[in-house]
Design a protein around this nucleic acid. Structure first.
Length: 269
DNA sequence: AGCCAGGCCCATT
DNA sequence: AATGGGCATGGC
């Protein structure tokens, strides 16, 4: 087990990072946070990260990026202040592409606690057994299951989406890794071919797995925030376009600050 | 108890 | 291209 200490001047709030809605496989025990990604595990206490693969998690936590610069650029913009007050230590994780595709297909029209449960069952049932936990399943293992299996873990009407998308990825019809070098809109076009992936899910994958800043996932919380700001609703497409322009060059990160801020406020009510 | 959730699919227009 | 109904399941 190796460790890495995040320097004091680097924004890093492990609770905010893990609970801001970008990742679903994490636990909290006392002052200890545990996060799983692919077949890997890290334990975080304060600013210290412990893992057998510390290099993976240095990239995972996006520790090479200058978030102070991003925060300074966003601070004065609308809706950001509230999120920053409690979530200035948020970082956009560099997560596994397949894991994000599957996780955010599950996320549609769903509650975060239930999303976590379904993903946990998915790993327990299909993932390789590691030391005290289970890896995220591979595309080929997921492609071999039945629709009934995905229903049995509680995926509901998303069951067939999970199976069909896993098949398309396992078959190489969509090659997630090879998309990395393409322009954001071209990646989106490919992702949208997967069943269960619409604009919002595609944006989440682009942001959390491909680390594309020029995206802005528009979900129910963002719509609430937008309504509060403007006093009227607008089609998702229009909100997305407006927000990308407003928060450029960091709309993706801005979205997380806003999401965290408004969701935290509503929870308190 | 009943509403609704980090939306998407599909039919209609 | 744009709109609207339907949707599995379970948390709140």
């Amino acid at each position: 087990m190796n460790s890495y200490i995040v320097k004091e001047n680097i924004p890093f709030d492990i609770e905010a990072i893990l609970t801001c809605g970008q990742v679903f496989r994490h636990e909290n025990k006392d002052n200890e946070w545990i996060v799983y990604s692919r077949d890997k595990k890290a334990i975080i206490k304060g600013r210290t990260i412990y893992s057998d693969d510390i290099d993976y998690f240095i990239n995972y936590f996006d520790l090479k990026r200058d978030y102070n610069k991003i925060i300074d650029a966003l601070r004065a913009k609308p809706m950001i202040e509230e999120g920053l007050k409690i979530g200035s230590g948020i970082r956009i994780l560099n997560q596994d592409k397949f894991e994000m595709v599957i996780s955010f297909i599950i996320s549609t029209q769903n509650f975060i606690p239930r999303i976590k449960k379904i993903i946990e069952k998915l790993c327990t049932e299909l993932g390789d057994k590691k030391d005290g936990y289970y890896a995220f399943p591979t595309p080929s293992v997921m492609a071999k299951q039945s629709v009934e299996f995905y229903e049995s873990i509680g995926a509901g009407y998303r069951a067939k989406y999970l199976l069909n998308s896993a098949k398309d990825i396992a078959d190489g019809k969509i090659d997630l890794d090879s998309l990395s070098t393409l322009p954001t809109e071209d990646i989106a076009k490919q992702l949208l071919q997967l069943q269960g992936v619409g604009q919002k899910v595609a944006d989440c994958i682009l942001l959390f797995a491909y680390h594309r800043e020029d995206t802005f996932p528009v979900d129910t919380w963002i719509k609430k925030a937008y309504y509060n700001l403007k006093g009227e609703n607008a089609p998702d497409k229009e909100i997305r376009k407006e927000m990308i322009e407003l928060y450029s060059p960091y709309p993706g990160t801005a979205q997380q600050y806003i999401f965290y801020g408004i969701r935290n406020r509503e929870k308190k009510k």
